[in-house]
Amino acid sequence: MTGPDAPRFDTKIVVLLSDGLAAWQELNVTAFLVSGVATSAPDLVGEPYRDADGARYLPMLRQPVVVMTADRELLRTARDRAEARGVDTAVYTRELFATGHDAANRAAVSAVATADLDLVGIAVRGPRNAVDRIAKGARLHD
């Protein structure tokens, strides 16, 4: 819903993707990062969906997700800004394209110092103004 009747949320969800990823990588990174956001607070997910015949579908996030792109330096800066503002962040590093399960993903991230993470995407959810400042300089994904 858009327009004057659309709800305005106190929080904002933004996914920042690295420039130059292949389409399958953008989709994969976005899906993983949004799953981190979705599990971060119980009020983020709405009720299950039902169609007119009564078939049930899984619930989804209650609010929109903005997908943006940034270069590698801005991804690092955005991660640092999020940390400085106390905004929880989901990260996806280049190494995760080569892993096959959650334990391997966590091991790949934990093996690298924060400053050395090869970020290809991050997701943040927080107060609107804080998230806008975190994503400053990124552009809407086209």
Rank of each mutant, 00 (worst) to 15 (best):
L17V: 08
L17P: 03
D19T: 03
G20L: 05
A22I: 01
A22R: 14
W24A: 13
W24G: 07
Q25W: 00
Q25V: 05
Q25R: 11
E26H: 00
N28C: 03
N28W: 05
V29Y: 01
F32L: 11
F32R: 12
L33S: 05
S35T: 13
V37H: 00
V37E: 04
A38S: 15
A38Y: 03
A41V: 01
A41F: 08
P42K: 10
D43M: 08
L44N: 00
V45K: 02
V45Y: 01
E47D: 15
Y49H: 14
A52D: 14
D53N: 14
G54E: 01
A55N: 13
A55I: 12
R56H: 01
R56L: 11
L58Q: 10
P59Q: 06
P59N: 03
L61W: 04
R62H: 06
R62W: 07
Q63E: 10
P64S: 08
P64C: 03
V65T: 09
V65D: 01
V65R: 04
V66S: 13
V66G: 02
A70F: 03
D71T: 06
R72E: 15
R72L: 05
R72K: 14
R72Q: 13
E73A: 14
E73Y: 06
L75V: 08
L75P: 07
T77A: 12
A78H: 05
A78V: 04
